[in-house]
Amino acid sequence: MPQHTLNYLDLLEAESIHIMREVAGQFERPCLLFSGGKDSITLVQLALKAFKPGKIPFPLVHIDTGHNFPEALEYRDRMAKEAGAKLIVRKVEDTIKARGLKEAGGKFPSRNALQSYTLLDTIEEFGFDACIGGARRDEEKARAKERIFSVRDEFGQWDPKKQRPELWNLYNGMIAKGENVRVFPISNWVELDVWNYIKREGIQLPSIYFTHEREVIIHNEYLVAMSEFVRVDEGDVIVKRNVRYRTVGDMTCTAAVASTAATIDDIIKEIQHTNISERGETRIDDQVSEAAMEDRKKNGYF
């Protein structure tokens, strides 16, 4: 009798692929939200494997805040090409102009909140009924309660009290016109699972995930990359440091971590020994209030 054992990465992968195929089977016009970050890179790999030898049956969508790391953008274009997938890019800059939106001010003007407007416009433009995203439940407490198929209303809002029960491996993607489902295939993965998977699959990552020398502003213990988007004030401490990114979001709201990790193995070792959580260490925008994420999600954030 052959051995029928799967390790945890195989189990998580099988579950995520099942979810990807449910999206393709249940929706007319799904898309995959691709940022160039490690979680959405993992999603692309899962989508590739789910539909082999066919191509990914939905486009990749990038909501470009204009504050991206150039390395992530370059990677995005290359990866979409290699995956043979259609890439749709919509810019927050254009939404700001077209809708006369007010930008957040301050030292690190984040476009994170404005992103939701561009996303909703893009959903409407293409009639997307499902958007696959790379959120994980271990990231944050409000995420821990979100479903894998998470229904959003016409305004992109999440109502935690109206969540559909999700039983066994049965997903209900039925929606009314104008509604949209955010689907999170790697809900059950934790940060270390993503890194171990990237290692196992031999996935190439944007270079900013590995140690490099960078000019950073030291702000409240965060290391924020110097860029044209941040405001330099008198007395700012600007230094050159060996850093890497643990998450890749906007240059204005993602902090770097001091690190000399040059390989995936180094990174895995660092994460195993760190005593600070992923979002806590790198997401400047989560620190505003205890319920920050819950509020953003209710307002259409993904």
Binding site: P2, L6, L11, I17, R21, K49, P53
Partner: peptide, 12 residues
């Protein structure tokens, strides 16, 4: 995408 001898639960 790779042919295998056998697929078993709970594989996709």
């Amino acid at each position: 995408g790779i042919e295998v001898d056998e697929a078993f639960a709970p594989q996709s």
